[in-house]
Design a protein around this nucleic acid. Structure first.
Length: 134
DNA sequence: GCCAACGTTGGC
DNA sequence: GCCAACGTTGGC
């Protein structure tokens, strides 16, 4: 069981979209490092859903319901998707500022590698963020 | 809206 | 295989 963080611009695909659609493809990843992370995901792994750009906060949790397969929106055939489903909205969103202020989270890719859109989290980091949301 | 950071492309 | 040019992301 692993933990992840997925980023999306809410103007393109928001938490509300995710809730409304139910299980749906996480498509559009066009970065190899992010793709490799998608390939590592197993069914029932959990991912934070982060709104980038306008909100800059983690708003909910999605679960992997189908492991990777090739991205139908990618003509080159090089990239993959997984299916995820919204499972829980956070009681309080956790903002990027809060994450940066927490020394336990200073090494996560969200801070270190701001352009990566699919990244792994350690269990302790996951739990820290969960605590911050309560 | 700007621009730094960074990833990708393509000419050589 | 190198690297300049270019495009994109995302914080500010």
């Amino acid at each position: 069981m692993k933990y992840w963080l997925l980023k999306s611009e809410p103007d393109a695909w928001s938490w509300d979209n995710q809730v409304k659609e139910g299980a749906s493809m996480w498509d559009g990843v066009r970065n190899y490092q992010a793709r490799n992370n998608l390939k590592e995901m197993k069914k029932n792994d959990l991912c934070f859903f982060y709104h980038s750009v306008t909100e800059r906060s983690i708003v909910g949790i999605v679960k992997v319901v189908k492991e990777y397969y090739s991205d139908p929106t990618d003509k080159t055939g090089r990239f993959v998707v997984v299916d995820v489903k919204a499972t829980k909205k956070l009681k309080n969103p956790v903002s990027l500022d809060q994450i940066k202020e927490n020394s336990k989270l200073k090494n996560i890719a969200l801070v270190k590698q701001s352009r990566l859109s699919v990244m792994p989290l350690k269990k302790t980091e996951w739990q820290t963020i969960i605590k911050m949301s309560n």
